[in-house]
C-alpha cells in the first residue's frame, strides 16, 4: 500500500472515531454502532499494512478529539511499544462520558478480552 492510501485510511479511521464520539454523546446507539463497524473495518485494513500502518495509527494518540484518542489507544493496547494504555488512563479522568468507555475498555483489556 502506498503512502497516500495509508493516509486516507487514517483519515477514514479518524472520521469514523469522531462520529462514534458524537453519537455516544448524543445517545444514538444506531449511529454509534455504524461508526463502530466503520472503525473496526478500517482498523482491520490498517493492521493489514503491518508496522507502517500501526505507526501511522499511533499519530492519532495525540489527536485533539477524545474519541479518536480513545479508539487509537484501544487498538494499540497490545502493542507495548506505543504505550497507549497511558493515553486511555488519561481519558478515564475526563469529565466526558467517554471516560467511562475508557474505563470499561481498560478493565476488559486487563481481563484479557481486548485482542486487537
Amino acid at each position: 500500500m502506498n503512502q497516500h492510501a495509508l493516509e486516507q485510511l487514517i483519515q477514514d479511521y479518524s472520521a469514523a472515531a469522531r462520529s462514534y464520539g458524537r453519537a455516544i454523546l448524543g445517545g444514538c446507539t444506531n449511529k454509534s454502532d455504524t461508526s463502530f463497524d466503520d472503525i473496526e473495518t478500517t482498523f482491520g485494513r490498517i493492521k493489514e499494512t503491518g508496522k507502517p500502518g500501526l505507526q501511522a495509527l499511533s499519530t492519532l494518540l495525540e489527536s485533539s478529539d477524545e474519541s479518536v484518542r480513545l479508539w487509537a489507544s484501544s487498538h494499540l493496547l497490545n502493542y507495548s511499544e506505543f504505550q497507549s494504555a497511558v493515553v486511555l488512563e488519561e481519558i478515564c479522568s475526563s469529565p466526558s462520558v467517554l471516560a467511562l468507555t475508557a474505563q470499561v475498555t481498560l478493565d476488559r483489556w486487563k481481563q484479557g478480552y481486548i485482542t486487537y
Binding site: I24, G27, L100, T105, R108, Y113, I114, T115, Y116
Partner: peptide, 11 residues
C-alpha cells in the same frame, strides 16, 4: 443509548 453502545473490543 450509552449503556447499549459497543465499546472497543466489541462488547
Amino acid at each position: 443509548g450509552f449503556y447499549s453502545s459497543r465499546a472497543p473490543g466489541g462488547g
